[in-house]
């Protein structure tokens, strides 16, 4: 057995899985706060990455500035998207809202192609050293950065929802909008905020992936990968989303290993998570961490 390949794929799985986890978390955030299934989640990564790329290459900004402006832009973008497009949809049937997010996804993909072309673009290098040694394994520096950023985002999320005033308000809104309003919470503000946070967090993931692989429309696939991750974890669980993301990342790479070493079927990498998803849903229809409501009358 090729242990070096296995080790490499394991690291890959964790790094990519953590990113899936971050994107899944921001997807769940929107779903929990406003019950909208956002099919345009992947486009947040895409738009964020292109914006940052554009600032770094066309404007020659240092990475920190380019990244900072991208975050500001994406916050406003998420806010505006909610206020202009999604707010008027409140109260419409779920299927109409889903159609709108699918429409947004298609629209933004086309827009990005029109603005930046159809070819993948490399990101300007950020680190001077390409690889570092961690516990005897040679790992790409960008991988370490990627994992570090994912972990920081997750920690901030955990803090935000457990301790901050607005985080509690968002959980209250997810629990019951009428109750939230009776406490003085403006659910409109919560909806807008959830889109803003979701967009900005996804765009961070987008930039990280772009730094590793370059910017291309492939980034929006992360929006599709979110589905096995969140359904595995349970649609309404942020912790579940993170673990679901990790599981999907590891599964992909493990399937890739099996395929490369033994099976030679090709593209197992792509489909394995979906097979596992089907099996898990048959056993646990609420996902691994999804909850039925506490009922007590």
């Amino acid at each position: 057995m090729n242990t070096e390949l296995l080790g490499q794929l394991l690291i890959n799985g964790i790094v990519v899985g953590a990113l899936y986890g971050v994107v899944a978390m921001s997807f769940v955030l929107i779903y929990k706060a406003s019950q909208v299934v956002n099919f345009a989640q992947g486009e947040f990564l895409l738009i964020g990455a292109w914006t940052c790329w554009w600032l770094l290459t066309k404007w020659q900004l240092p990475f920190i500035w380019g990244f900072g402006f991208t975050l500001v832009f994406m916050t406003l973008f998420g806010l505006l998207l909610q206020v202009v497009v999604l707010r008027p949809m409140i109260g419409e049937p779920i299927i109409s809202v889903i159609m709108v997010t699918i429409g947004l996804s298609i629209f933004f993909q086309a827009l990005m192609k029109w603005m930046f072309g159809v070819f993948a673009q490399p990101f300007p290098p950020i680190f001077e050293t390409g690889q570092v040694d961690v516990l005897g394994l040679r790992i790409q520096t960008v991988y370490v950065m990627s994992l570090g950023i994912s972990v920081v985002i997750m920690a901030v999320f955990a803090w935000f929802f457990k301790f901050s005033r607005m985080g509690l308000a968002m959980r209250a809104t997810a629990f019951n909008q009428q109750v939230a309003q009776s406490l003085g919470i403006s659910v409109r503000t919560v909806f807008a905020l959830s889109w803003a946070i979701s967009a900005v967090v996804s765009s961070v993931a987008g930039v990280v992936v772009a730094v590793v692989n370059g910017v291309s429309s492939a980034l929006s696939f992360y929006g599709i990968k979110v589905f096995p991750a969140v359904i595995l974890g349970g649609l309404d669980s942020v912790v579940g989303a993170v673990l679901g993301g990790l599981i999907v990342g590891l599964l992909e790479n493990f399937a890739h290993f099996l395929d490369a070493e033994y099976l030679n079927w090709g593209n197992m990498y792509q489909v394995a998570p979906f097979y596992v998803l089907i099996v898990i849903l048959m056993i646990k229809p609420y996902g691994l961490f999804g909850t039925k409501d506490i009922e007590r009358v």
Binding site: L168, N176, Q178, V179, T291, D293, I294
Partner: peptide, 13 residues
């Protein structure tokens, strides 16, 4: 401030 009928506390907090 209204305390609604049926208490309506947030069960998962």
């Amino acid at each position: 401030f209204q305390v609604m009928e049926g208490r309506r506390i947030i069960a998962d907090m």
